[in-house]
Design a protein around this nucleic acid. Sequence first.
RNA 1: GCUGGGAUGGCGGAAUUGGCAGACGCGCACGUUUGAGGGGCGUGUGGGCACCCCCGUGUGGGUUCGACUCCCACUCCCAGCACCA
Length: 841
Amino acid sequence: MEEVRGSTPLSSTNFLIMEQTMEKEYIPSEFEAKYYEEWEKEKLFKAEDFSSKPKFYLLVMFPYPSGSGLHVGHCRNYIPADTYARYKRMKGFNVLHPIGYDAFGLPAENYAIEHGVHPKDSTYKNIENFRRQLKMLGLSYDWDREFATSDPTYYKWTEWFFGLLFKRGLAYQDTNFQWWCPHCKTVLANEQIIDGKCWRCGTPVVKKELKEWFFKITSYADRLLNDLDKIDWPERIKSMQRNWIGRSYGAEIDFEVVDEANEKPKISVFTTRIDTIFGVTFLAIAPEHPLVMKITKDEYKESIEKYVEEALRKFETERLSTEKEKTGVFTGAYAKNPFTGELVPIYVGDYVVFSYGTGAVMGVPAHDERDFAFAKKHNLPIKVVISKDGNPVEDLPEAFTEDGILINSGEFSGLKSEEAREKLTKYAEEHNFGKVVIRYKIRDWLISRQRYWGAPIPIVHCPVHGAVPVPEKELPVLLPEEVDFSPRDTGESPLANDKDFVNTTCPICGGPAKRETDTQDGFACSSWYFLRFADPKNDKAPFDRDKVKYWLPVDLYIGGAEHAVMHLLYARFYTKVMFDAGLIDFDEPFKKLLNQGMILGPDHQKMSKSRGNVVNPDDVVKEYGADTLRAYILFIGPLDTDSAWSTEGIRGVNRFIKRMWSLFIQLEDVNETISNEQIEKGIELMTDKMIVKISDQIEKLKFNTMISSFMEWLNYLYKVVEDDPTVIKTKAFKEAAITFLTMLAPATPFVTEELYRKLGGSGSIHKRDWPQSKGIYKEEKTIVVVQVNGKVRDRVEVPIEADLEDVLDLVKKSDKITRLNIDFDKAKYVFVKDKLLNIVI
RNA sequence: GCUGGGAUGGCGGAAUUGGCAGACGCGCACGUUUGAGGGGCGUGUGGGCACCCCCGUGUGGGUUCGACUCCCACUCCCAGCACCA
């Protein structure tokens, strides 16, 4: 490993450098760890409950402590966040910037199976490594608030929240087909299936019929959707959540099935386009629809059975694909359109999704693409009932899906689609065959997991009393330590093996009962952790109300976009439940959300072990020091965009730090005896300008341009010293250096601390106030751009606030302008003070 | 298909109430320092051109004295969702 060196001096300042010796080289390993220990001991980053200072809660998504340790992706989030936290402290805020570990999870359990190490042991060992790395990076967390979700003192309250949801009727069990990951050997919630694959391991999921626990997130669908309008989140995430919740307004209409036995079964269809109902030429129902076999005529039974069987088998894999023929089979049955009395054939078609709406649709080929395709394939009539202008339409090459004016629709003809929807729905309601319905795409949150390393579901199953919650005073239900983790495909948790754990008594009757053996989805643990940071040690309640009232909601939350419809949706749901339960007085947890971009490999590809393009923070710190890594991460690009790691790029930033070091280290031996009024004034002006500029950039989280401002500033200081080496001995220069270091301290906390001390600073640089502008940043003179017909022809220097006449006097003396032979009397002038003069001829 | 975001030098990127396009960094070139290498320092670097000057922010149009920025139409790229009735 290359050693970090580099205090080679400016050639023109050699006289100062002569005395420079070895200890003046920039060797970050000599002081980084030392300062971190000191800061920790001094409790520099402590968040003080109920302080009178304004509070600021800055949260980063806590990490899963994997065996491979912290990666640069974490850095992309944690370093900018830390920089902002440090800045906010210097601005006088009481900052809560905590860290913890999302420590329950399957990888630890898999590791246990392979290597025989207990998940608890490997997890806490990994946490130790994470903690070391977080400190190595200089992250300014309040370590007194650290916890892991796998701590019994934490998961006790995760269990308690399960109980809360249960009591509020929001937790229930249901037997149904669930998504099952054959690799993780557990069920998953809908949100956790990405492209038909498990979100964690990428294995294609299959359907399995199981009895599972659900949280009724659907009953909060409306609020989860509406309240998106009141939070400052990236539009992308809001749109993903809107999309996921998928609210649509429509109507449910009953179609009576023609039936000799006179049972008159009804098929209810959901539609958002009731205005097209006069154009119905068939009904299609999902293969899973309970009425399928009931309505099918005998002579069609065989083909229907075959089709349904095939469709259900396909359901697991192929049915997810989009571009596919619209297959279906006729049932032999007919249904009556309640508006027209017409009889239309009923088909079973696997393009109808059973889990959405009623699992049955009315087929309107003229006005729906899918129905159009289906009708073409099965030679069904196409009846046009909407046209753009209300005139009849002869031929329809493809479905007309827009709104228009109703035709061929009896007494409703002539109405616009929108009015028609209202009137038709009203008509259906009045005649008792339909109603207004709001449908959602979101499903209830399946929270049980068939695995060991998670928070137990605090339920006891009693043969008499059913599912009974474990009383609060008996919480937590502890995870037993000695358990066989062997994989199983049965849909049972490893805990089911542990008879001592399973066999218990009913909390109500005291009779023999069995414990629930599934554990909770890890997302249940992370749905309330942001509240626990307000009061992490509380053993009487999940948190103290007043503390939460003081700290929450989170002012700024930074994390990856991959959690858009998982963690971020669940956490909002939990918050709303707590709000309804009167535990908290806000109903959105994160006021402002930011998604950091990804760090890609030098090849612009996603970093992965298999590609061999992974950058390890430990290596980078070893080579360049933590400050260089920090500054580079800040500089690499805007916080919210993806950026490729560049081995050359980081050297550029390292060069900047070394240049700063070698310039400022020279100040150690200077006594400010020399003065040069004019240059000093220039330095002060620059300092003031930079205070204004950098303050604005850091406040707006524009860290990449903030670092470039520091580079510009340093280049300026170098230039000044090059022009006149004695400048370095002036008071103004030293003050500029101190201001520079103070403002850079949030970004590169170690090297600035070291230089500050070497320059005679007392205490920690991190306790200093953020510099204030003296208001002199407006220069006395400014450059006005002179354009002719919008093209830049010259620039003139004038005193600020100069008016048109003054500028014009100078312009008339300029060769570049006069040679254009402008008739100044006839010209039109567009003049922007201190900026621009456009002469228009 | 729908939704959201984007397109600026060789590369990462800067520039917003419309006012000098390309800050800063990388790379590259030349010079300098050095026993050598590395490193440092300095100068230059959008394209065309010897110069004047011309062209230039995905494409085409528009508004304006003036457009990377605003408006209209389009192309391509990225992400999310996707037979949702």
